[in-house]
Nucleic acid binder design. Structure first.
Length: 576
RNA sequence: CGGGGCGUAGCGCAGCCUGGUAGCGCGCCUGCUUUGGGAGCAGGAUGCCGGAGGUUCGAAUCCUCUCGCCCCGACCA
């Protein structure tokens, strides 16, 4: 591709709205442009990258016996009402009404549609297993889109759905997909981990997230320093503390803590560690009780997903200040478990606190020497907090958890029969009995994968693409002018590289060298072949490796071999 | 949805407090020179100052409303 004919609007400065590096670089490199909040157009260079990602995905999905389909992006409400998600999916589901007043939604995911397709035509265990996938644009009306295509509202996703006759076969399908995902992200040149995850709104029995390790990631993953356990912090099953408080509880004592509300403030004021505190939060829920008091250790955080599951709520939120005052008879910041008129759920770790400090349900007052076993026996114990650095590994003995940030690029779920039952996707088994199919679903964020690759591969000059998903594998930079000797030589090399099967760009623009070099570094072609007057006189070209910055002169006739060699090495270096 | 911030040329920003000719850098166009890391000189174009209403002789500037965007939080793949 000749850049003189390519739409490649690079920018020296990034728009102020871009926050993370991948967003800035995708805009600057001329890959994307924003249309509205969370909605982006892909420019030619962006399309090139996305196609490469998609093709890797297609090849590995096909290899795993999945078949590509293409489902509608607009879906009728009836299907969603049938699965029960029309009411449960909430405001993220973009609902549309057509001219006749019929209700539709822009698909945020396609379980309903695919289940409908399969239930129509699949009747027998002989037709199973079946795995269908598509690459489609989805829309989820995120509360707060951010970070460019990393968390857009409209985004491209590969989603696959498996249907099996029995549990064993379903597990095999799941494992096959897990393998395919490992192959996909490895080929893309990403540094990633598969971690145990929560199933969220998709539902199902177990799941793994594929996380690209990057400090800008929005998710935190915990992994064990002794075994290979890794999980999303939200998901980590925490063990109850080994020691339950028995000791000798001291008599309860009220202390004045004027104006000290946050745990850190009170801790500093009383000169006690935060772990000695019992934090009391009041949540409003959609359960019968409406309000619930939640206790965690002062240095722990409530995990709302675990909490919802524990109390059987669909929606929970922190109670308003007014509600807190009504329930505790005190301003916020002084709530405590003793004497509360609402149900209390305590995190397992709270049982291990000896002589702890809590709010007194009275303004400017806390209580010391509180012990669960004596002072608030009515509380229910459960695992309702996020893991923190140093927590014990739930899988091995003596392992400690450490934390890393990650970007979720893929998520696989074993769904079980959630959708097949609600939507009647059944088949006849060998015995002639009707059974619901066992389903799995498997997603990959296409644009997000590209963005994650940039998060992981960039430097002060721009993007450093892994070769497999670079928009072009190599760029030929001519330092000559239109039609002069240098440009003719460059053109010859460009054609030779292209004929050899390399995806090659040719910067034949009538621009100054500095401009071309900076653009090439910004866009991040893995290899640059530079042809100038000086080198031409000696019959050599300069070859620069973007990743290392290393430059070397190579006889012109060896260009292809040299470029191929560098690309191979870059790919090899990525493999663990 | 709560808190904070921003809308002025394609992009980055100043001007607003204290009302009176709309500016700077980059980019863009023309010409000449230049050509191995975002060139130099000369000339040029570009603005419903997000929108509506109000105050005023006069509004980018003050007031009200509205729309859009960004950040933090809650939420989420």
């Amino acid at each position: 591709m000749k850049l003189s004919r390519y739409h490649l609007p690079t920018l020296k400065e990034a728009p102020a709205e871009a926050e993370v590096i991948s967003h800035k670089l995708m805009i600057r490199a001329g890959m994307i442009r924003k249309l509205a909040s969370g909605i982006y157009s892909l420019l030619p260079l962006g399309v090139k990258v996305v196609r490469k990602v998609e093709n890797i995905i297609r090849e590995e999905m096909n290899r795993a016996h999945a078949m590509e389909v293409f489902l509608p992006s607009i879906q009728p409400a009836e299907l969603w009402k049938e699965s029960g998600r029309w009411d449960f999916y909430g405001k993220e589901l973009l609902r549309i009404t057509d001219r006749h007043g019929r209700e539709f939604c822009y698909g945020p995911t396609h379980e309903e549609v695919i289940t409908d397709i399969v239930r129509r035509d699949v009747r027998s265990y002989r037709d199973l297993p079946l795995n269908l996938y598509q690459i489609q644009t989805k829309f989820r009306d995120e509360i707060r889109p951010r970070f460019g295509v990393m968390r857009g509202r409209e985004f491209s996703m590969k989603d696959a759905y498996s249907f099996d006759a029995d549990d064993e076969s379903a597990n095999r399908s799941y494992i096959d997909m897990k393998k395919a995902y490992n192959a996909i992200f490895t080929r893309m040149g990403l540094n990633f981990r598969a971690v145990e995850a929560d199933t969220g709104q998709i539902g199902g029995s177990f799941s793994h997230e594929f996380m690209v390790l990057a400090n800008s990631g929005e998710d935190t993953i915990a992994h064990c320093d002794k075994c290979d356990y890794a999980a999303n912090v939200e998901r980590v099953e925490l063990l109850p503390p080994k020691e339950i408080s028995d000791g000798t509880p001291l008599p309860v004592e009220k202390v004045e803590t004027p104006g000290k509300k946050a745990v850190e403030d009170v801790a500093e004021f009383l000169k006690l560690p935060a772990s000695q505190f019992i934090k009391t939060l009041i949540f409003k829920t959609d359960t019968e009780q409406e309000f619930v008091a939640v206790l965690t250790r002062g240095d722990h955080e409530v995990n709302e997903i675990k909490l919802s599951r524990t109390i059987g709520a669909n929606e929970i939120a922190l109670a308003s200040d007014e509600d807190v005052e009504k329930i505790t008879n005190a301003p916020t910041g002084f709530a405590g478990p003793i004497g509360l008129p609402i149900p209390i759920v305590a995190d397992n770790a709270v049982a291990g606190i000896k002589n702890g400090v809590t709010g007194a349900n009275k303004k400017d007052t806390h209580i010391k020497n509180v012990n669960m076993a004596r002072d608030f026996k009515n509380a229910t114990l459960a695992d309702i907090r996020n893991a923190i650095e140093g927590d014990a590994c739930p899988r091995c003995d003596g392992g400690k958890l450490t934390m890393r940030k990650g970007i979720e690029v893929g998520h696989i779920f074993k769904l079980g029969t959630k959708y097949s039952e609600s939507m009647n996707a059944t088949f006849l088994n060998k015995e002639g009995k009707s059974r619901p199919m066992i389903m799995g679903c498997y997603g990959i964020g296409v644009g997000r994968s590209a963005a994650a690759a940039i998060e992981q591969n960039n430097d002060e000059n721009g993007i450093v693409w892994p070769p497999a998903i670079a928009p072009f594998e190599v760029i030929v930079i001519s330092l000559g002018k239109a039609c002069d000797e240098v440009e003719k030589a460059a053109d010859g090399i460009y054609k030779a590289l292209q004929d050899s099967g390399l995806d090659t760009a040719f910067d034949d623009r009538n621009e100054r060298p500095g401009m071309k070099f900076n653009d090439a570094d910004l866009i991040g072609y893995p290899v640059q072949v530079i042809i100038g007057k000086r080198g031409l006189a000696e019959g050599v070209v300069e070859i620069k490796t973007r990743k290392t910055g290393e430059k070397k002169n190579v006889p012109m006739e060896n260009t292809i071999v040299a470029v191929t060699g560098i690309l191979e090495e870059l790919i090899k270096a990525k493999k663990p």
